[in-house]
Simulated assay, not measured.
Amino acid sequence: MRRHDTIAKVTTPTDTPEPARRPTTGEPDSVNHGPMAPDQRLPPVEPVIRPLDLDRDLATLVPLYSSAHPSELVNADRLRHDIAITSETRRLDLVAEVDGQVRGYAFTHLDTSIDFEGATIAQVMVEPAHRCRGIGQALAKRLREHWETIGSKVVVGRVAIEDSLIFAMRQRFAPTSMQRVSRLDLSTPVQVPPVPEGITLRTLAESDDYTPVYEVYTVVLNEVYNDGPRTPMPYDTWHTACAEDPLLDRETTVIAFDGDRPVAVSWMARAGDRLESMLGGVIPEYRGRSLSQLVRAESLRIARDNGVVEAFTASDQDNAAVFAVNDKLGYEPYIKQYTVMRQL
């Protein structure tokens, strides 16, 4: 399961945030982060919009998704999993074809993780070389029609490149929050702080019973996403969505225990030699003991020892405590991503 997409607090930004900038390190050259110059654009087209055919289209979606979200880990199995776990939420998946080739992808579904009627998630992504041709507009039009049929009231998306932010604002979405994505080069050893007395560290791979892990995960999740009323995720739902994520790395996911009680978690996903922090934190009564830094550092140490070369994490721009942990661990700014919202 990818970093949690949720309804953000409804805010009215007083200033338009600075668009995402192209990273200076670690960025694949094929990813386009800035608006395309007019003389580089291909002519407008009228794409064929059709429902996603998972078996036929899946291989095409992986590079397309990565171009829109360069720090997120994705593969065919994870995309298939993400679609499956939201299949009962009035989900719609569409692709846009140009000359028989898939050049764009969009999806939307109700957000059942928050107690807000009509809360909806949506994403539109277009292959970099084919942006500004009307493909995104055609996909967005079909999404708007679907929102009317499912009773959407607030629609939220995430954008991580400048093209996408500009496109979202033209679709009457407003940025409501900004997250900083940070990157860590794991070419140098990771320094793990001393483990406090009474605290033990275990990886998820060492856990036979996931119930205690579920408990700390849900507490930390509600602390991180304090964005509206939430009904706790049932264990079976959590296990399917999170513990069965195809990219979940049980070897680098670390939990801190005080006796038998889990008190901090570093939940990690891995694809090849890249690592992504999906969730991290400590339960409220154990704050101030550097346990969040401890479990993250242990995750990174294990990852480096097992061939990971770079790690990513995303944090809200106002979360000074998380930035302090990331800075101590050596993370550096990579890109900015925005939560955008449209009220219908």
Results as ranks from 00 to 15, higher is better:
77 D>V: 12
287 R>T: 09
12 T>W: 10
250 R>S: 11
153 K>R: 10
198 G>E: 06
65 Y>L: 14
212 P>N: 02
13 P>Y: 03
328 K>I: 04
146 H>S: 07
35 P>D: 14
147 W>R: 04
47 P>V: 02
242 C>S: 15
100 G>K: 03
143 L>G: 04
176 T>G: 08
305 D>E: 11
65 Y>T: 15
62 V>C: 10
7 I>V: 09
181 V>C: 07
244 E>V: 03
64 L>H: 00
158 R>I: 15
184 L>S: 04
25 T>L: 05
127 E>C: 08
282 V>Q: 03
119 A>E: 05
204 L>V: 08
224 V>E: 07
294 L>W: 01
43 P>M: 10
286 Y>P: 12
219 V>Y: 09
115 D>M: 15
203 T>M: 06
128 P>V: 00
218 T>Y: 09
166 I>W: 11
212 P>Y: 02
219 V>I: 12
327 D>F: 08
264 A>S: 08
165 L>P: 09
78 R>H: 05
219 V>E: 11
186 L>A: 05
213 V>R: 06
265 V>R: 06
264 A>C: 04
70 P>W: 06
100 G>A: 05
208 D>S: 14
12 T>Y: 09
13 P>C: 00
170 R>W: 08
227 D>E: 14
66 S>E: 15
141 K>G: 13
281 G>K: 02
267 W>E: 11
270 R>Y: 01
285 E>M: 10
33 H>P: 06
50 R>A: 04
12 T>R: 15
338 Y>P: 00
201 L>Y: 00
209 D>P: 02
65 Y>M: 13
246 P>C: 02
249 D>H: 06
34 G>Q: 12
169 M>C: 14
23 P>D: 04
313 T>D: 10
72 E>D: 15
243 A>F: 08
27 E>F: 13
196 P>R: 00
310 E>W: 08
161 I>R: 06
29 D>E: 10
314 A>F: 06
128 P>S: 02
117 E>T: 09
109 H>W: 06
227 D>K: 03
